[in-house]
């Protein structure tokens, strides 16, 4: 039997989802899962900050390069912090640094994990998960 989901409050679902993208963990805080949201925020910010600290590169959107697009897609998942960092010219990346690849992995992981966290807010919003 197919699971029936409650989509009654679409605004709440959308707000939690978008907040969760803009500020990691904010979607959970909006859904009154404060402790979980704060921990998510700290973990994603730590991953992103370490990525920058380890000389990882923030890439811009480039449809001509498929792998470049995938990198951008992974990094943009971090939300506002990615946009602010790119706007401020942070994250140029230092390819000669031995931590360059580590930095990139931290940055990709921060964005991709935040996408999973956003999906979690969706599950909580529709009552599939507590």
């Amino acid at each position: 039997m197919q699971e029936s989901l409650v989509y009654e409050n679409r605004t709440k679902i959308a707000v939690a989802f978008i907040l969760g993208w803009l500020i990691p963990g904010a979607g959970h805080i909006y859904l009154k899962k404060t402790a979980r949201g704060v921990i998510f925020f700290l973990c994603i910010m730590a991953l992103f900050s370490m990525g920058i600290f380890l000389q990882g590169a923030l890439v811009g959107l480039d449809f001509a390069d498929f792998f470049g697009f995938l990198k951008w897609f992974a990094e943009v998942g971090s939300g506002l912090v990615y946009l602010v960092a790119v706007g401020a010219g942070i994250g140029a990346g230092e390819i000669t640094s031995f931590t360059y690849d580590y930095g990139n992995i931290f940055l990709y992981t921060a964005g991709l994990l935040n996408m999973l966290i956003m999906l979690d807010t969706f599950d909580i919003s529709v009552g599939r998960k507590n």
């Binding site: 973990c43 991953l47 931290f106």
Partner: peptide, 25 residues
Amino acid sequence: MGHFSSLVLYSVLVSIVFALLTKDT
């Protein structure tokens, strides 16, 4: 930051997020 300390930090942060996402108690 060295290779091993980067690995440990990465592992801690990712494990925390997955533990919170996948388990309830």
